[in-house]
Nucleic acid binder design. Structure first.
Lengths: 251, 251
DNA sequence: GCGACAGCTTGACGACGGTCAATGATTTAG
DNA sequence: CTAAATCATTGACCGTCGTCAAGCTGTCGC
């Protein structure tokens, strides 16, 4: 859900031949905190990093998770706009802000790559916003699973969840319990299989996709309770002819 | 809520002395649609533009509104990642993508400005995500009003709503009715005053701010029903000592 | 093996907000 | 001024999901 084919990929390592040092973090260690002065930007070599922000009242909103080959901390600002924490042992190459700034002066190509990377970051946040803004719990979880499965390097339909239930909740704007119930429901419906609570096998990808996109194609409708005919009708889907995202607002 | 002091401002017009033509749109006319090839980026001279995306099922998620001096369409990609529609008669200067690309080759400063603008765009989307991900209806509406009041050029506490109830709903992930109820509640509580349904006066800014940030400082709590003591406890606020956004995740 | 602990699951309950429907307010056309 | 259209408001109803509180499962140390 959060990565898309439209968005540009992260900078390939081959195109990133700049002075960099490799750093390591244990699980739960922070790469940086929101508000810290920007010291460097990072390319993950191995592991996984969660990007998040914390509201005043302590609510945490995870913005996404980044894996090998992806960039972390690329906001071009004085301070980091998000926090970044490793969720498993992680190594990453750090390019200092000073180095980056120096290179940017002489390399328009690098600037373009940074712009593309920022655009990609924006796209992912936008995608998450779409999911949280209009999907119900099971739709959000479905979208999350689809995303993980697309990004996992494992065999196509089985992968290990990189996030705990609580972290998935913080990502999707749900509670632990609601995430758990959604997972259980997906399991009971035979859409996924679970082993050890963190190993997922997608059994009915089409159905899962439908849930993630709330296509409402009869079958198991998006609701956790699966008993309502209602769907998101903030804008009724009376113009679903266009295959691509192209739909003027009702006025 | 969506603009922040942390984020960099849009490019000042003075720093944008590039070949540009001024275009005009009536209310409800599109500047561009998501998926269109990027032809230009725009600096609004007057009017207001809504940025949005439409989900497959027809749900519209407004990402934000842009006013005079702000940029629209700055994603650095082949196609636009969002749609943009004028919500009142609007004029904007268009810098073609070709021109931009030519200038980027020779002007590292411009590249930096673009990166800052993209970072600002990212920040706004992130802020909206924070609001939608964890605030209840009245908190979302409160945050929206605070944002409008901060950005309005009018007298400090009175401003004209640039969005209809329905558009506010599409922005905040709520229905028209819920937005309306929240506005009414804010009015009944004496926190705002309404004239002609689109002219708002903020009477108790501190309270409105508290609602927007769910500080839960006694007084009128965030709920529409105002009878529950419960608050967002996805991550209990047991560490609210830090004044700024700095809070390690619970592990 | 056992106990302790963390994370996950499941149930009960109720509030929030979506849905449907009717009414009211404002604007525009004639 | 009246009619029509659009938008906003208000009410009734109920599904979803947050909350609270058990119980369950798997892991770790010993």
């Amino acid at each position: 859900m959060f990565a898309t084919s439209v968005a540009s990929p992260a900078l390939p390592e081959a195109l990133w031949p700049v002075p960099a040092s490799t750093l390591r973090w244990d699980s739960q260690e922070h790469l940086f905190h929101e508000g810290d002065p920007v010291s460097a930007i990072f390319t993950i070599e191995s592991g996984a990093v969660v990007i998040y922000r914390t509201a005043r009242d302590g609510c945490r909103q995870i913005h996404g998770i980044r894996f090998q080959g992806e960039l972390v901390g690329i906001g071009y600002n004085v301070t980091y706009g998000v926090s970044a924490v490793a969720v498993r042992p992680t190594s990453a190459r750090a390019v200092s802000r000073a180095t980056l700034d120096r290179l940017l002066d002489n390399d328009p190509t690098l600037a373009r790559q940074m712009m593309r990377a920022l655009t990609s970051e924006l796209r992912r946040t936008s995608n998450l916003l779409m999911v949280i803004g209009s999907r119900t719990a099971i739709g959000r979880v479905a979208a999350c699973l689809i995303d993980f499965s697309n990004r996992a390097a494992d065999s196509d339909d089985t992968f290990v969840l990189p996030l705990s239930r609580g972290e998935m909740g913080d990502l999707l704007g749900l509670t632990i319990e609601t995430v758990s119930r959604a997972m259980t429901r997906l399991k009971v419906l035979g859409i996924i299989a679970l082993r050890r609570t963190d190993t997922v096998t997608i059994r009915k990808r089409a159905t899962l996709l439908a849930l993630a996109e709330e296509d409402g194609d009869g079958a198991a409708r998006g609701r956790l309770c699966a008993c309502s005919e209602a769907r998101c009708t903030r804008y009724p889907p009376n113009e679903m002819t266009t295959t691509e995202n192209r739909r003027p607002p009702v006025h």
